[in-house]
Computed example of a mutant assay.
Amino acid sequence: MLKYIIRRIISLVISLILISVITFAAFSVIPGDAVLAKLGTNATPERVAQLRTEMGLDDPIPVRYVNWLKDALHGDFGESTQYTGNSVQSLMEQRLPFTLTLCLMSFAVILAFSIPLGVFAARKKDSWINGLITVLTQVAMAIPSFFLGILLTFVFGIVLKVFQPGKFVSPSQDFTGSLQFLLLPAIATALPKIAMTVKFLRNSILNEMNKNYVRTARIKGNTESRVLYGHVLKNALIPVVTFLGLVLADVLAGNIIVEQVFNVPGLGRLLVTAISNRDFPVVQAVVLFVTAFVIVVNFVVDMMYKFIDPRVK
């Protein structure tokens, strides 16, 4: 167990270092000058040269990377070129709570619906209900989250007038209203993932039902419910845990577009705005955060997988 954990930690550290190198290198070779973006094209050559020296852009790339990494480890990603006078750290701290709240709400919706529906579909595998669930999951998987967001906005915002489209409610003004506003984008992100998880869990349960230990449990006189919930479900959930870890990481990335649809002031809107304005320090920091989040989630899933199934090597 200890060797497994140490290997996974070493792999985590190496992955994070590689991601930081790739992220820094990518934004170092992209055309564009951060100095001109900050000063404007009318700046004097002397002022441009002075600011380049102050920002360390005259140093070799390896030196710049080491300096950037040292600052990043302390949460310092520099200053935004678009939001003058604001550090990248402060901008992310303002937007991160909304994105994480939306991410957790989406994941909670996925867990609340996918596991019961997956078990139910497996139990009704020979009925018309299973066919209906299969069709609905296929449709849900085919519809992009941003299009679902547009549909939900039209139905609940324009037709039913449950909320005002595009008008985000701050938690400081109305905490309950803010959560209600975030519920629809959470559902838009969650629905395709629910469909995938239901299909995955159903197939996993049906695969387990054909194994020898299930036949043995039935011979001993266990009811179908006892066999399913007492024996099969635990084993069927083992691969689903890994899948849900990937889903959680995908939810964070998927929220980037959904935030635009619902006008949620999270990291997604910050990233899109920064890309359109070539605000590379912000883009760099958000991309690094998202990729690091995905890697850390995968690490946590690996740890959970080992505790759920000690046979994992």
Rank of each mutant, 00 (worst) to 15 (best):
94 Q>L: 13
89 Q>L: 08
148 L>V: 07
91 L>A: 06
158 I>S: 05
78 G>L: 06
82 Q>D: 05
53 T>P: 07
141 M>C: 05
93 E>V: 08
110 I>K: 02
73 L>P: 04
112 A>E: 05
95 R>L: 03
89 Q>K: 14
69 L>P: 10
57 L>Y: 11
84 T>N: 09
138 Q>A: 09
56 G>N: 06
126 D>N: 15
122 A>I: 00
77 F>P: 00
67 N>W: 10
136 L>E: 05
100 L>P: 00
155 V>T: 08
70 K>V: 11
81 T>H: 07
140 A>C: 06
109 V>N: 07
131 G>P: 06
122 A>G: 08
162 V>M: 08
80 S>I: 14
77 F>V: 05
152 L>T: 02
123 R>H: 07
111 L>S: 00
129 I>F: 15
162 V>S: 08
130 N>P: 01
161 K>L: 10
136 L>I: 09
53 T>V: 14
87 S>A: 04
55 M>P: 02
91 L>D: 03
112 A>W: 11
136 L>W: 04
155 V>A: 10
126 D>Y: 14
144 P>S: 02
146 F>R: 07
103 C>W: 14
150 I>G: 01
124 K>A: 09
149 G>L: 13
84 T>L: 14
66 V>L: 14
135 V>F: 13
130 N>Q: 10
164 Q>Y: 11
82 Q>H: 08
163 F>G: 02
69 L>R: 06
145 S>K: 03
112 A>R: 03
66 V>G: 02
122 A>S: 07
96 L>F: 15
135 V>D: 03
155 V>D: 02
83 Y>F: 15
116 P>W: 12
102 L>E: 01
159 V>A: 04
159 V>C: 02
49 A>Q: 13
115 I>F: 09
106 S>Y: 12
52 R>A: 08
63 V>D: 02
138 Q>Y: 11
123 R>E: 03
51 L>V: 06
126 D>K: 10
146 F>T: 01
114 S>R: 09
109 V>W: 03
104 L>C: 06
84 T>R: 15
108 A>H: 07
136 L>G: 00
130 N>R: 03
54 E>A: 14
49 A>D: 11
100 L>D: 00
161 K>E: 08
67 N>E: 03
105 M>H: 05
128 W>A: 13
148 L>H: 02
109 V>T: 01
125 K>Q: 13
55 M>K: 13
120 F>D: 03
83 Y>E: 15
116 P>H: 13
123 R>G: 03
96 L>T: 06
112 A>I: 11
53 T>F: 12
130 N>L: 01
124 K>M: 13
87 S>Q: 10
158 I>Q: 12
162 V>L: 12
129 I>G: 01
83 Y>N: 14
155 V>C: 02
108 A>I: 15
103 C>I: 04
162 V>F: 14
117 L>Y: 05
62 P>M: 11
85 G>T: 12
58 D>C: 04
80 S>M: 06
94 Q>F: 12
52 R>Q: 09
112 A>Y: 07
